[in-house]
Simulated scan of single mutants.
Amino acid sequence: MAKVEKIKQIADRFNVSMKSAGLQFCLANPAVATVIPGASKPSRIAEDKDALSAVIPEEFWQELRNQGLVNPAAPLPLEKK
């Protein structure tokens, strides 16, 4: 939980939602073809769509890597562009 709290603090500092970061991080890996988030109600589908299209600054991903919060070998969304 401490790692999650550190990620949340960085996300808050960069004004990035955890949902956006999580979905975009998963899809940055070329081995991942799709992510299927659960949707308990129809409005969640719109939230997921917005989360996937949210612009996340490269500095956010670099900060996660610099803080050792993601594996150095993990593909990041900024590397996929």
Rank of each mutant, 00 (worst) to 15 (best):
M1T: 05
M1G: 13
A2S: 12
A2Q: 13
A2L: 11
K3C: 10
V4S: 13
V4C: 10
K6P: 02
K6S: 10
K6V: 03
I7K: 05
Q9G: 12
I10H: 03
A11C: 12
D12E: 14
F14S: 02
F14E: 01
F14N: 04
N15R: 14
N15V: 12
N15T: 13
N15H: 13
V16G: 02
S17T: 15
M18N: 09
K19Q: 15
K19S: 15
K19Y: 14
S20R: 01
A21D: 02
L23D: 08
L23R: 13
F25I: 04
C26A: 15
C26W: 12
C26G: 13
L27Y: 05
A28L: 12
P30S: 08
A31Y: 14
V32T: 13
V32C: 07
V32E: 01
V32N: 05
A33N: 11
V35G: 08
V35H: 07
I36L: 15
G38R: 09
A39P: 00
S40F: 10
S40G: 14
S40I: 07
K41F: 08
K41E: 12
P42R: 07
P42T: 11
I45Q: 03
I45C: 10
A46Y: 14
E47I: 00
D48T: 15
D48H: 15
K49P: 10
D50Y: 09
D50P: 07
A51Y: 00
A51W: 00
L52C: 04
L52H: 04
L52R: 00
S53P: 00
A54Q: 06
A54C: 04
V55I: 13
V55P: 02
I56M: 05
P57F: 02
P57R: 01
P57S: 06
E59P: 01
F60K: 00
F60G: 01
W61D: 00
Q62L: 07
R65M: 06
R65Y: 07
R65P: 05
R65H: 10
N66A: 08
Q67W: 05
Q67A: 12
Q67T: 09
G68E: 08
G68P: 04
L69Q: 10
V70Y: 01
V70C: 02
N71C: 06
P72W: 03
A73C: 02
A73P: 01
A74M: 11
A74C: 04
A74Y: 07
L76E: 11
P77A: 03
L78P: 02
E79M: 05
E79G: 07
E79K: 08
K80R: 12
